[in-house]
Design a protein around this nucleic acid. Structure first.
Length: 672
RNA sequence: GCACCCGUAGCUCAGCUGGAUAGAGUAUCUGACUUCGAAUCAGAGGGUCGCAAGUUCGAAUCUUGCCGGGUGUACCA
């Protein structure tokens, strides 16, 4: 049995004992993992609760410690329980039979179990993340989105869910229009000239998205003084939305190239997608009309006859947030007949859930190195690849979007649920997270003029419009450079290819862990020193533990000593018990139990939509391994049984560690 | 105005549906490489858990009020 199953068995017994011996239904049984190993492996505060209920029901005052004794007698009947201590005012501290547990779990392999658990017939979950406006390079805030989304997607897969990853491309929005305005009116370029610039950048090893980053900022500055230019924005936007004209073609080139650049950036971090749905198709295939029909049929939308919304199609919307509750109608179609962003978003969300009643056409966009296709939407039926996968139709849809979009996301969730109550609000989940901001010092470090007012603030919001932000590729490259220097100093003899590979893995580990260790509600105030660190609570720390564990097994391998051979030495349970006793035994035992908690940790992270839970667990596991590593010298251990216990424990730990890291998208290097 | 988020060690943060002496990392100071790798480990100091009430055997955690900081709240996109 896994440690989670043991706990469940005990919970049931506690519940049963409460009703049989005391005639009381305790409901949900609370159990905890004590912080200190002296307090056992599982603890139940049930006696307190029971004493309270007995007093309420009969007036009789019972001592919790006495009640606990009754539980103790019942729970000790399980053979996996070594003994139970009634502690403090009435805690029930359960100690498992250590040798029995180790022998039974000696070959536990969380790695294949977690990675291959996705089943083909499970209901599909759609996870949308990244969704960077394709008009500039991605910055660190976008990376937080992608890392949270990608890790969450991996967590879901590890719990057996079937997942589709979507990266929404807003290729017809104002942000793209702004850059197009820049190209046409500031740079005076046509499509051919843009292509020429793009080719030139490529030949110089520079990227198109960086060029757009600067141009976008330039346009932002120009708008402040040039009203004519600002007027061009609406004009350009209109042309892009309409499609089938030179401006739209130009915009399409710009957006597509940025999508390619951003996808390359994310690929550096092991972040991939199944599908890129584009706004242009939502427009051209007229998703809104279909949603509009359904909303009218189902009576959730009506034409406002009077008041300030007169002439608009509105949806009744109950909200405690937003403007006055009296004005809770949400406008979906403006009085001029055009649809609002919210309207389009509701239609799109309906598509994701498979309830819109129409679909995109799809074609392959490009292939990753290993041959995996990324698909993109198209409005052109003749381009459609019929043999392709079925997209959308999510049982549940997770939208990874920052917390500033909470209100519009709430509107979409409630709107869709109003049209389709059989799906309900629970099918749409806004996986929100706080922004990554810059400390005033970090902004200055980037060469930015920080004004008087901003300097007093605790942090400054990043802004693509102002060109203020830490670009993802810059940061990754810096991490790789720093890591390479470290690898060079330790393993200068390795071939350069391998050193680069390790440096890359360390950079990915550092960045992903850095963004995952904070809970979603925490604003990350970006700090270069902290983000670039390989020491302390970092990805490198976790990777280092696994690397050291692996090197033990490499040495064992060189000696032709197999793990199975060590496992077979665990048959003498008395001797195994002895090894697992006392202070030295505690170290080993706590590593065993912690390693065995990976699966329940992944479950918990999925249940609470919080990848940080997995990150914290991984760090604690790495720390526990380091402690174990320093206290026990495995290769030179003379006691054969003890050596076997140590080897098996180290194996459990490195498997759990590797699986945990993999679930966060972090690889374990060969050497570091 | 209303809604949501945050306030825990000098700094950056964990702390699950209430549970035992509130924990990490970092910084500071002191130790540990002839060892399976020191990107590591051990130790020390560091706390009115924003404030105040309430709920109860028990509150960092739940409720209410206040204080401080942040974000959002358009027929924009």
């Amino acid at each position: 049995m896994t440690i989670f199953e043991l706990q469940e068995t005990l919970r049931q017994k506690v519940s049963e004992t409460a009703s049989v011996e005391f005639g009381i239904d305790l409901g949900q049984i609370v159990s905890e993992v004590p912080r200190k190993i002296e307090l056992g492996d599982a603890a139940f505060p049930a006696a307190f609760e029971l004493a309270k209920l007995i007093k309420q029901q009969t007036g009789e005052k019972k001592n919790p410690r006495e009640i606990a004794e009754t539980f103790k007698a019942e729970l000790e009947k399980f053979d996996f329980v070594d003994h139970i201590e009634v502690a403090g005012p009435g805690y029930l501290n359960v100690f498992y039979d250590r040798s029995k547990f180790l022998v039974e779990n000696a070959d536990a392999q969380p790695l294949p179990k977690l990675i291959l658990s996705e089943s083909a017939d499970a209901p599909k979950i759609c996870v949308e993340h990244t969704s960077v406006n394709p008009n500039k390079a991605a910055h660190i805030g976008h990376v937080r989105n992608s890392v949270i989304g990608d890790t969450f997607q991996r967590i879901l897969r590890a719990t057996g869910k079937r997942v589709e990853v979507q990266n929404y491309i807003d290729n017809t929005g104002v942000q793209v229009a702004d850059v197009v305005v820049g190209f046409i009116y500031l740079e005076n370029m046509n499509l051919d000239e843009i292509k020429a610039i793009d080719a030139k950048l490529r030949s110089e090893g520079r990227t198109f998205d960086y060029y757009c980053w600067d141009l976008y900022a330039k346009v932002g500055v120009a708008y402040q003084t040039d009203e004519d230019l600002k007027a061009k924005r609406a004009e350009v936007l209109h042309l892009i939305e309409e499609g089938d004209n030179d401006t739209a073609l130009l915009a399409n080139y710009v957006a597509t190239r940025n999508v390619e650049c951003i996808t390359n950036t994310m690929e550096r971090l092991s972040i991939r997608y199944d599908l890129l749905p584009r706004e242009s198709e939502i427009l051209h295939l007229q998703f809104w009309n279909k949603a509009f029909e359904q909303m009218k049929e189902r009576g959730v939308i009506h034409l406002a006859a009077e008041g300030k919304n007169a002439g608009c199609w509105v949806m009744a919307f109950d909200s405690h947030s937003g403007t006055d509750e009296h004005e809770s109608d949400k406008i979906l179609v403006r009085s001029n007949g055009t649809v609002t962003y919210t309207g389009k978003d509701i239609a799109y969300q309906m598509w994701k859930l498979g309830i819109l009643g129409m679909d995109f056409f799809y074609k392959p966009f490009f292939k990753y190195g290993d041959g995996k296709d990324v698909w993109i939407t198209t409005a052109n039926e003749s381009e459609h690849v019929t043999a392709g996968p079925v997209f959308g139709h999510g049982e549940t849809v997770y939208n990874v979007i920052d917390t500033r979009q909470s209100y519009p996301q709430e509107v979409v969730r409630k709107g869709v649920a109003a049209v389709y109550p059989e799906k309900g609000e629970a099918a749409s989940v806004h996986l929100s997270y706080e922004m990554v901001a810059l400390s005033p010092a970090a902004a200055e470090e980037l060469g930015f003029d920080v004004g008087e007012e901003d300097r007093k603030k605790p942090f400054i919001e990043m802004s693509g419009r102002k060109g203020l932000g830490v670009k993802a590729d810059d940061l990754i490259t810096r991490l790789e450079t720093n890591a390479l220097a470290e690898v060079e100093s330790r393993h200068g003899e390795l071939p350069i290819e391998q050193k680069r590979q390790v440096a890359h893995q360390l950079a990915v580990g550092a960045l992903r862990y850095f963004l995952l260790k904070f809970t979603r509600t925490t604003i990350i105030v970006f700090d270069f020193k902290e983000a670039l660190s390989f020491e302390g609570e970092t990805g490198a720390f976790c990777q280092y533990s696994a690397v050291r564990a692996n090197s033990i097994f490499r040495k064992l391998d060189e000696r032709n000593e197999s793990i199975n051979n060590f496992r077979s030495k665990l048959s003498d349970s008395a001797k195994v018990s002895e090894v697992l006793t006392g202070k030295s035994g505690d170290d080993i035992w706590s590593l065993i139990t912690l390693s065995s908690r990976l699966e329940e940790t992944v479950q918990q992270a999925a249940l609470q939509n919080e990848p940080a839970i997995l990150a914290k667990f991984t760090f604690n596991l790495a720390k526990a391994f380091n402690l174990f590593y320093h206290h026990h010298k495995i290769l030179i251990e003379e006691n054969a049984v003890k050596q076997a216990v140590l080897v098996v424990t180290a194996d459990l730990a490195r498997n759990a560690l590797t699986a945990a890291l993999r679930t966060m998208g972090i690889e374990v290097p060969e050497r570091m």
